[in-house]
Design a protein around this nucleic acid. Structure first.
Length: 586
RNA sequence: CGGAUAGUAGCGCAGAGGCUAGCGCACUUGCUUCGGGAGCAAGAUGUCGGAGGUUCAAGUCCUCUCUAUCCGACCA
């Protein structure tokens, strides 16, 4: 490609919206442009990198037996009504009516499509197992897109769907993806860790997320250096300390101006762990069949030294969504904000109690009366509710192995879910087994956000001068900079390299050397050839690697092409050495 | 969806009632230059986000609206 003919341009200054280094460089180097909130165009350079990422994914998916298909973005709403997600998913899914006034949706994922196809194609156990995948556009009307390509509304996703006869078969496909994803990310040079995760709206059981660790990430990851435990905070577990003593009789005491746990502890001179706090949320419950919504008050009781993990709470309560309760709603259920507890509350309230409270006793709790608390409250004796772990894991907490947990920020670039029969049963996707019986197909779904992958690579491979993507995903392999008058020579070198199959970005512009060098730094093609008077006179060209600009090598012009081919090979080999082969142990 | 901020040239920004709206970079042409964002000269570029209003006069003040960004809620 000749830079004199290139569609995009580079920017000297970063657009003001660029708030991360990677995003800034993607904009400045001319990889991407924004069209609207969470909507982007990939320019030629960005699209080439995007395609390379996609091809790495294809290679690996084919390797584990995937067959590529393409499902539609526009879906009839009917299939989404079958699984109930038409009702349970809120505004994030865009809906519209076609000219015949049929309900339509823009697919935000393709479990429904995949199942709808599979139920017609798969009738017999002889057809199983199957694995299909696609690389396709998704639209999710996120309320708050941010950080460039990290969190967008329209994006490309690789999604695969497995269909199996048995749970063992599903495990096999799941393990294949688990290992395959590590190879995919490492082939592109992106370091990731895998964490145990919540399956969210997918509704499955087992699930893992692939995380690129970065301070700009929106997920919090809890890890243990000793036993290797890694988990998204949403589901992370930890060791709680319990303090059991002899039960004492309940006692009401005056506690003026003690609305927070801190104030209460100071006033009574007790530790936080000797208190029980009440957190009031309102859960929305949606009927999958009818789409009817119902709101219920949820009272979460947790020990004062811990915080509620809302995601855990939502799951235990089986709510579709949660929001903080309003004061009136709490009062209506016979509880008093600031002095709340589940004691003598409205029986319609869903009470969920963290196991820390059950296993401790004589806790100070609200008396549901302004200015009063109760000493020595005990779960089981004074109130009841559903017991579960709803506590949020934090930095410094104790891992179940006894070591200290750490927290980090991460960006989710991939996820794998064991769906089981949730979709096949809801959508009547059954096969006839060897024994003549009809059984639901067992499914899994697996995703990689391609654009987010690109954004993470940009974060990882950026220095103060620009991008420096690995050779497997860089838009071109070689950047040829011509600084000499002799056009014939540079043209010949460009031709030779191209004919040898090298992907060359050729700077043939009438620009000053400084402009050419800065643009080359910015775009960050891995290998740079400079043709300048100094070296050409000696029959040589200068060659530098973008990742180490201080190291300048001189290659003979006669053998330049073959030497460059070697350099490409070397860079590829270095990357291959970094390929992660990791198996899931179930 | 709540809170905050901002919309003026391709990008970054100035102009805060006054007459023809400006600066840097980018862009065009010419000459010179040619190893780390060159110099000189000449030029082109705007419905000042949109609608309505106040005023002799609005980029500037008011109202509404749209859009974007950030924080939060939310999110695979």
């Amino acid at each position: 490609m000749r830079m004199s003919k290139m569609f995009s341009k580079t920017l000297r200054e970063a657009p003001s919206a660029a708030d991360s280094k990677g995003y800034e460089m993607l904009l400045r180097a001319g990889f991407i442009r924004q069209m609207g909130a969470g909507i982007f165009t990939l320019l030629p350079l960005g699209y080439r990198t995007n395609s390379k990422i996609e091809n790495i994914i294809r290679e690996e998916m084919d390797q584990i037996g995937g067959q590529e298909i393409l499902m539609p973005v526009v879906n009839p709403a009917d299939i989404w009504k079958e699984t109930g997600r038409y009702y349970s998913i809120d505004k994030e899914m865009s809906r519209f009516n076609d000219r015949a006034n049929r309900d339509m949706v823009l697919a935000m994922t393709h479990e429904e499509d995949a199942t709808a196809i599979a139920r017609n194609e798969i009738g017999s156990y002889k057809k199983l197992p199957q694995l299909v995948y696609q690389i396709q556009t998704k639209w999710r009307d996120d309320a708050r897109p941010r950080a460039g390509l990290i969190r967008v509304r329209e994006f490309t996703m690789k999604d695969s769907y497995s269909f199996d006869r048995t749970v063992e078969g599903l495990n096999e496909q799941y393990k294949n993806h688990y290992a395959s994803y590590f190879r995919i990310f490492s082939k592109a040079g992106l370091p990731v860790i895998v964490v145990g995760a919540d399956s969210g709206m997918m509704g499955g059981k087992v699930s893992h997320e692939y995380m690129y660790l970065s301070p700009i990430g929106e997920d919090t990851i809890i890890t243990c250096d000793k036993c290797g435990y890694t988990s998204n905070r949403q589901v992370a577990v930890f060791q709680k300390k319990y303090f059991k003593e002899e039960e004492k009789p309940i006692e009401k005491i005056k506690t003026p101006d003690c609305k927070t746990i801190e104030e209460l502890c100071t006033f009574l001179n007790v530790e936080k762990r000797q208190t029980a706090k009440a957190v009031f949320m309102v859960g929305t419950f949606i009927d999958d069949k009818t789409g009817e919504e119902e709101e219920k008050l949820i009272t979460a009781i947790i020990r004062g030294d811990l915080d509620v993990e809302e995601n855990k709470l939502q799951k235990v309560a089986k709510a579709n969504s949660l929001r903080p309760a309003h004061e009136e709603e709490i009062l209506a259920a016979n509880m008093v904000p600031g002095y709340g507890s589940a004691i003598n509350c409205d029986p319609k309230t869903i009470v969920i109690v963290d196991d820390s409270v059950k296993k401790s006793n004589n806790l100070v709790a609200g008396a549901n009366e302004k200015g009063y608390h109760l000493l020595n409250t005990n779960f089981g004796r004074d109130y009841t509710g559903k017991v579960a772990d709803i506590a949020s894991a934090k930095d410094g907490y104790t891992c179940q192995c006894g070591h200290t947990l750490k927290e980090n920020r991460g960006i989710e670039v991939g996820n794998i879910f064991q769906l089981g029969t949730r979709y096949s049963e809801a959508m009547n996707c059954y096969f006839t087994d060897e024994d003549g019986k009809n059984k639901p197909v067992i499914m899994g779904s697996y995703g990689i956000g391609v654009g987010r992958f690109l954004a993470c690579l940009a974060e990882e491979y950026t220095d103060e001068k620009g991008l420096s993507l690995p050779i497997s995903v860089a838009p071109y392999q070689v950047h040829l900079i011509n600084l000499i008058k002799d056009k014939a020579l540079s043209e010949k070198i460009y031709e030779d390299l191209s004919n040898a199959g090298v992907e060359v970005l050729f700077d043939d512009r009438k620009e000053s050397p400084g402009v050419k060098f800065t643009d080359a730094d910015l775009i960050g093609i891995p290998i740079r050839i400079t043709l300048g008077n100094r070296s050409v006179k000696e029959g040589k060209a200068e060659v530098k690697f973008r990742k180490n600009l201080d190291n300048n090598q001189l290659f003979d012009l006669d053998t330049l092409t073959s030497k460059i081919l070697e350099s490409i090979k070397t860079l590829k080999q270095e990357l291959e050495q970094g390929i992660v082969n990791k198996e899931l142990e179930i």
